Amino acid sequence: MAEQPTIHILGAGALGSLWAAQLSQQNHVILLVKPDTVDPAQSYRSFQFVDQNQTSTVTLPCEPSISHVKEEHLIETLLVFTKSYDTLNAVKQLAPRITPLTRIVLFQNGMGSQQEVTNLLPNNPIFAASTTEGANRPDKSRVIYAGKGETWLGSIGAQQPECELKSLSSLLASSGLKLTRTPDIWEKLWLKLAINCAINPYTALLDCNNGELIGQPLFDNSITLLCHELSQAMKISGIEKTADELQALVIDVINKTANNVSSMLQDVRAGKQTEIEYINGYIESLAHTHELSMPTNLWLLQQVRARY
């Protein structure tokens, strides 16, 4: 019997735990966790995985996410689910275990962390994933698979042969989750960024679920202006989407995810740092670089910064 592939998962929050649970059925999955949470005598972590009405217990081996160990514990495939602002440092802390052959898949929200990692490891096979899978973790011992979605995977690092993307997508598809490989992952990342820019800060400022945005004066009176700015930002980056197309997409996502609590609002409610700098903040840095004014986006960015 062939040995199972080993996959390391960094960032075992809701989404990381969902992928860990699904991938562990056919692969050897190891969670990389903060050193102070790994008990040397019990280096496993268990959680209840709730998929629709079925609950199962998932138990996975753990290793510390900060490594001083060299060659003998090298990482072959690394899936990164950390927050955008933690990603660069989290990958740096694993440097002794990362070789030029280590495949890294980034699942971050927003934009900016992908470029930081590719700059750190310019010769590595680095990929980005954009996913609509839904998961939440009401407490540390329970992960709920909240809604089936789709994941797109594409290369963003050093030029890789097509067979490398094919091999990795086959490995991730062993999760049973719907996966599609794409030659242009940047377009998917940009669309997700635009949607996040147009939903997350509003939910954080209004303290409401996605579906409650429509009809709120703050949202209704500024979303069209914001979509014009986002369309302009995308055009600078080589992606053509009209403001009308973006606004229609945003409204569609709001309606389809009406009961969802955005990740930014979840962070605000939990008193945690938000990812605003990698969402609306990325758009503002792009505007600044190109000496453009995007006042609606800047106002949202400043409001979230000021309040949280």
Results as ranks from 00 to 15, higher is better:
residue 83 K to E: 12
residue 98 I to H: 10
residue 53 N to I: 02
residue 88 L to A: 14
residue 118 T to R: 13
residue 105 V to N: 11
residue 74 L to T: 00
residue 93 Q to P: 02
residue 87 T to Y: 13
residue 64 P to M: 09
residue 92 K to V: 07
residue 98 I to Y: 13
residue 101 L to D: 11
residue 44 Y to I: 05
residue 48 Q to F: 05
residue 71 E to L: 14
residue 100 P to F: 09
residue 85 Y to N: 12
residue 61 P to I: 07
residue 39 D to P: 03
residue 67 S to P: 01
residue 69 V to F: 15
residue 38 V to I: 02
residue 75 I to W: 03
residue 99 T to K: 00
residue 115 Q to W: 14
residue 67 S to E: 15
residue 90 A to R: 12
residue 102 T to R: 10
residue 90 A to P: 00
residue 71 E to T: 03
residue 87 T to N: 12
residue 59 T to I: 07
residue 113 S to Q: 14
residue 39 D to V: 13
residue 50 V to W: 12
residue 54 Q to H: 08
residue 46 S to D: 14
residue 111 M to L: 15
residue 44 Y to L: 02
residue 48 Q to P: 01
residue 101 L to I: 02
residue 69 V to G: 05
residue 76 E to D: 14
residue 60 L to Q: 01
residue 88 L to R: 13
residue 59 T to P: 01
residue 115 Q to I: 10
residue 39 D to I: 07
residue 38 V to D: 00
residue 98 I to M: 11
residue 97 R to A: 07
residue 83 K to I: 05
residue 42 Q to V: 06
residue 75 I to V: 09
residue 106 L to F: 07
residue 110 G to K: 04
residue 110 G to D: 09
residue 54 Q to M: 09
residue 101 L to A: 10
residue 57 T to R: 02
residue 47 F to K: 03
residue 84 S to V: 00
residue 54 Q to R: 09
residue 86 D to P: 02
residue 66 I to W: 15
residue 66 I to G: 00
residue 42 Q to D: 02
residue 62 C to S: 00
residue 68 H to G: 09
residue 40 P to K: 01
residue 67 S to L: 13
residue 38 V to F: 06
residue 49 F to K: 07
residue 115 Q to T: 06
residue 88 L to E: 15
residue 91 V to S: 04
residue 96 P to A: 15
residue 118 T to A: 10
residue 105 V to F: 03
residue 81 F to G: 09
